[in-house]
Design a protein around this nucleic acid. Structure first.
Length: 250
DNA sequence: TTGTGTTTTACGACCTCC
DNA sequence: GGAGGTCGTAAAACACAA
């Protein structure tokens, strides 16, 4: 196991995950719905393939892998209990901007407030973060497993990239990670999971298709259900058209 | 409100390729 | 040997019926 892998595992992923939550909570860029997870970013979207070279501004998206793995800031950058100050020296975090994410005000800005739900989430995050930090070198992931919820913007941009290509290049992975404030590992895993999802859907549709075909003959010979069977089977076959399209994309 | 099924992140094991 | 692929799975987040 490489050092870089461990570094990314400890810092890039975990710290970034917390940051994603703070991004999502920002009241200026998201519409708050009833549930906490209903914060939706409303800034404009980016087209990753209409970009000019260097569209992702590296100034605003320093790799989260660079964060200290054991500092509190790495766990929840920009906010730590008792201090409430930006943990990183870099002024880059004053504003976090990308074409896809728009401009995110500083975590220190007056507009950075906490809704009741966000307080609940933040407290939970801190528990998880601290439990991680108290087990140096331990296998924390499987025990205190957690997952972050990507913002709609992150999902949208990832999905757009996926629609462009099922397999992301190293260059695009780096750009996307910077632009979406995700680690490259997260982008890579997202694409892996996305492909798995598509395979799963394709498989499911194929199963439905085959079962429809196998079930149709016995029903067809049933004189009582003859007309209904004919109509239902034909509609099922029509509904299978999209699955064929998905396969053709490969 | 709660129980339950589904979806979404994230990982480990294992494999292939360079 | 390292990077990245699939596959299976855990668990959080989510949706929704009862």
């Amino acid at each position: 196991m490489s050092v870089s892998y461990l570094l990314e595992k400890n810092t890039g992923m975990y710290s970034n995950s917390m940051r994603t939550d703070t991004q999502t909570l920002n009241s200026q860029n998201f519409i708050q719905y009833g549930d906490f997870t209903g914060y939706h970013q409303v800034t404009g979207t980016s087209d990753p393939h209409a970009q000019t070279p260097g569209l992702w501004n590296p100034v605003y998206a320093a790799p989260w892998e660079e964060w200290s793995p054991h500092s509190q800031n790495a766990c929840f950058p920009g906010f730590s209990p008792g201090t409430e100050q930006i943990g990183l020296n870099s002024p880059d975090l004053t504003y976090i901007q990308s074409p896809g994410l728009g401009t995110l005000p500083s975590l220190n800005s007056p507009s950075f407030d906490y809704s009741p739900d966000s307080q609940r989430r933040n407290s939970f995050d801190w528990i998880k973060c601290n439990s991680f930090n108290t087990v140096p070198g331990g296998k924390t992931r499987t025990k205190d497993k957690y997952r972050v919820v990507y913002t709609d913007q992150q999902r949208l941009d990832l999905e757009k990239e996926y629609q462009y290509s099922r397999y992301i290049t190293i260059k695009r992975k780096t750009e996307l990670a910077l632009g979406l404030s995700l680690s490259e590992r997260q982008v890579k895993i997202w694409f892996q999971n996305r492909r798995a999802k598509e395979r799963k859907m394709t498989k499911k549709k194929l199963q439905v298709s085959t079962t429809t075909h196998t079930l149709t003959p016995p029903i067809m010979v049933d004189p009582n259900n003859c007309t209904m069977a004919t109509s239902s089977s034909s509609s099922s076959l029509l509904s299978e058209t999209p699955s064929i399209n998905i396969k053709e994309e490969y």
